[in-house]
Amino acid sequence: MDAAIEVADLRKTYRGRRTGEVRAVDGVSFRVERGEFFGILGPNGAGKTTTLEIVEGLRKPDSGTVRLLGRSPWPHSPELTGRLGVQLQASSFFEFLTAKEQIETFAELYGAAKGRGDEMLDLVGLTEHADVRCEKLSGGQQQRLSLACALVGDPELVFLDEPTAALDPQARRNLWDLMRAINAEGRTVVLTTHYMEEAEALCDRVAIMDAGKIKAVDSPAGFVRALDAPTRVTIAAGQLSEERVKELASGESVTAGETQVVFETRDPRKLLTALASDGALEDLSVRTANLEDVFLHVTGREWRE
């Protein structure tokens, strides 16, 4: 079977009168297998949306090729778009319609079965707000409605452009559950985000994108493993003697400050057991390497949100 998405060497330069040339996408290639949960992680302006729009067939690239479910997204064919579900970065609704009217209009456009609209509203937890006009829904409710519109056509391949931006932590976690469920049903999901934890929590594989280029692609665990970074264990200062600190560090890096002692170890289990038996657990924190460190490592610059 064909891959869900195959992208080779995409390039897109925006030419603005004032902004000059912006190389939004600069030689991007990747492949997404069917059933996979694929993430594109990158800071603002990295080129995530532009990449997605080219893959979806909304924009023509300057060069490069795209295959979606074995076909070209250009020119548009209802045969292909009927198998896609799309949530754009900005929620796009028909003005002045209620949530229910909105989803039902989309259901008709996708030729979905009767009752499918209600089912989707229920899935995203908007049944109570079915009769509320779209513009009166909160930001998070709008995001969920737009996700429902993306799913109403029972798509094989779902594109979600920053679906959890501007959500509170609780709503974000609820949406994560929903996205996991969508993927578990066998749908391929492509997600863009600038939240490290989100990519870590959801994605089978993550592409790290910066300044129009994909810097690396791997699973979140694979990235961290490849980074081979030590675990940072921090405790409050003054619990251990200087000698004991040196002894526990056993040749690895340690920084003893006024308030904290920070160990960087490759064998956190042994260190933590020793700290426990010494009863030196006050203000203990353990931090393993995460995608943030990976980003720093891969792009050579600090993550900024």
Binding site: E56, G57, L58, H76, P78, E79, T81, G82, L84, V86, L88, A90, S91, S92, F93, F94, E95, F106, L109, Y110, G111, C149, G153
Partner: peptide, 18 residues
Amino acid sequence: VDWKRDKLLRRLRLTPAS
């Protein structure tokens, strides 16, 4: 201008309706 702002046409281009 509304379409430019809310990208509705863009979204509709990705449905099977033309």
